[in-house]
Each structure stands twice: as C-alpha cells, then as structure tokens.
Amino acid sequence: MYLNNLPINKLARIKNISGENVFIERLSDLGVFVGSKVKVLRIAPLLDPLEIKIKSFRIAIRKKDARYIEVIPYD
C-alpha cells in the first residue's frame, strides 16, 4: 500500500521510499525514512495535499509525492 491510499488516522510503518534522490534525501532530513511510523492526519479541502504526522511533527505532502512512499499499516 502507498501513503496516498492510507486511510486517515491509521498508523503505518514506512516500508520503502522510491523516486528521485533529492526527494528521498529531503524526506530523510525531515525525519521520514524507512522504518518511521506515519499517520495521515487529514486531506486538504481540495483533496490534495495530505497532512501526515511523523513522530511529533506534521508535514504537508502532495499525493503525487506520497505515491512514492510504500507503507505497511499496523493492524
């Protein structure tokens, strides 16, 4: 499953991140890397971007970019 399809408020673990290197590095600087726990908090009124929560902070990410982040939801 990819981050853009993760239901709201469901906790998941990041399995893999693909895409450009700059993108992966930037995410990693922000604390988003393989193994982090992630949760989608909400979707913006116009259906994009998403607000996700990683550890104790939130970031906005577009669906287009969230598609590169593979996650495994916790049961």
């Binding site: 895409g19 993108f23 995410l27 922000l30 607000e51 939130r58 906005a60």
Partner: peptide, 9 residues
C-alpha cells in the same frame, strides 16, 4: 514538471 513539495506544519 512540478517538483516535490514538503512543508512542515
């Protein structure tokens, strides 16, 4: 192509 966008809230 639009670049990626990450914004801390």
């Amino acid at each position: 192509q639009t670049r990626h966008f990450l914004l801390e809230m």
